[in-house]
Amino acid sequence: MTRYLAGVITATAALGVGTWLLLAPYALDYPSGGTASDVDLWTGAGVCALSLITIVVWVRAWRTRLRDDGLLPERPVPQPGVPEEPPVPAATEPTIEDLHSLLKPLVTALAADQLEYAAQKAGRPTEERR
């Protein structure tokens, strides 16, 4: 862990130095257009860019190490071999045909029950009256 921390701290402090180099020509009132001003601005820009890249590299390395040690949850990686689930089709409005096809078996079953009941009633009229 020490090396990651050392890397991040060093690069962050260097970012501070780079920022100061960018500001120094104005803060210390360098002669405008002089070599000193150019050197500080270009070097400061380079140090800032290099520091930012170095910070990103160290932070990524640290995160990778923490994942390897099981201290950070694994990032879900999409696997190229596994096909993705097909998209669920959008729900459509039910039509009257859907309603008919849904109710038809129910109505048929009810009609059959009714016929059977009527047949039983006709066959045993006395029992029903009791």
């Binding site: 990651y4 060093t10 690069a11 180099l21 070097t43 380079g46 170095t54 590299v57 160290w58 390395a61």
Partner: peptide, 24 residues
């Protein structure tokens, strides 16, 4: 990955040397 980080710090070190020498 951390090898790249070490290279980055080495480059910062080299930039520091350049900065000391630059005025001369």
């Amino acid at each position: 990955m951390s090898r790249l980080g070490i290279i980055g710090i080495g480059l910062l070190f080299a930039t520091g040397i350049w900065l000391v020498a630059a005025p001369f």
